[in-house]
Write a protein that binds this DNA or RNA. Structure first.
Lengths: 215, 215
DNA sequence: GAAAAGACGGACCGGCCGGTCCGCTTGTGC
DNA sequence: GCACAAGCGGACCGGCCGGTCCGTCTTTTC
């Protein structure tokens, strides 16, 4: 979803595209995906049509913004992977993830809601899974984790922490409480306890659809 | 939000109201709050106007359905409070909560999104908090929990587990994986570890608005 | 069993939002 | 510096959905 370069954009067009992305990031962060295209365009100082000339649809914009986040997560994962203490790396990664979610209220929920089923951004989620694997590997190798921990557990725990941080849309858990819940789940994953019961979540579940019927 | 009884409803009206509630429960469970009033009315075998004659708005219906869930949670809390082993009580309560969330995909998220800020259903959330208190009390008294655990922690953990269960809207974590994440958080809350770091989430945060600005 | 109160439903309204169109403007290559 | 392609914006369209209106039908009551 990067800038197409078959015919290089005119300078002003390129500038506007950048502005739109920036405005969208800000607007999505503040109010979630519900902000209208019109408002985003206005905040970017641009007409609606200009928006649609750059992005085929609102979804495409969302994907583009999402890609930025994935990149950030990948960077955090690389940091974590090179940490001296693998458990600290893991902690740092999850904390970074929490920050990202906190600064982008409702964004991730909305993203997953929007891309449910038919058009999952497989490439992006695969990159995310890779990142998770890179974070987990050193901790697994060092044997600091409870028996049975695997990738699906980490992605699930990340999701759980993301939920903890936003008790309601527009409400943020005070930062002083973050380490508490991070600690709760890390305690639950640390070595020196019984093996984890049950099966791990499928990390791919984050992208593949499995129709779930209620009982 | 119970049935008004100043002028008793005519028999057919009462029957229709019940049908609407039932249809709404089913529809919300399956597809979240996004189902239109029209569809709910159709599923109830009723006209749209009839719907609006019974409920002043869609939100009122949502509240009514929500109240049903609160009642269910209260019942689960009472069960938990009378369990022989307080930790088992806690586990059972959280498991029940997970089931409820699983069977009502996207319902709770949507509810909190809808009632954000201006018109929080204070009475309902207070009842919820009471229930949580009742679950927690025996475990606290028995000293089976890590030092520092309080009500806000339980509500947060419940929210986290609810998130774990729904990796994406329409996708459900396989039931075999539920005990795993329940165990992760319970391990993190059990006595015999360092006191919980940081501060606890404010349980009331689930209802009171605190405007949260992103960094 | 008839009349009045109450309930019914489907057509209708209005606002919102993603997406398009068209006449005007502006950067760009020669 | 000119011509033309590329870009631009705001008016416009159409579908969706919460909510209302009104002519008709059902229940109740005496």
């Amino acid at each position: 979803m990067a800038v197409s370069d078959v015919t290089p954009l005119r300078a002003d067009a390129r500038r506007n595209l950048e502005r739109i992305l920036e405005a969208a990031r800000a607007a999505f962060a503040e109010r979630g995906l519900d902000v209208g295209v019109e408002e985003i365009a206005r905040r970017a100082g641009v007409g609606k049509a200009t928006f649609f000339r750059r992005f085929p649809s609102k979804d495409a914009l969302v994907l583009a913004v999402l890609e930025g986040f994935i990149e950030e997560i990948e960077a955090a994962a690389d940091d974590a992977a090179t940490a001296a203490d693998p458990l600290d790396g893991l902690r740092g990664f999850l904390l970074h993830h929490m920050t990202l979610q906190a600064n982008n209220t409702a964004f991730f929920d909305a993203v997953s809601a929007r891309f449910t089923g038919e058009n999952p951004p497989v490439e992006l989620t695969d990159r995310m899974l890779d990142a998770i694997g890179r974070v987990l590997a050193p901790a697994l190798a060092a044997g600091v984790l409870r028996e049975g921990v695997e990738a699906g557990d980490l992605s699930t725990v990340a999701k759980m922490l993301g939920a903890a941080i936003r008790p309601m849309p527009g409400v943020l858990l005070p930062e002083a409480a973050w380490p508490r819940y991070l600690e709760v789940v890390l305690s639950g994953l640390r070595a020196g306890q019984d093996p984890l019961p049950g099966i791990a979540a499928d990390p791919c579940t984050m992208v593949r659809e499995v129709s779930a019927n209620s009982a």
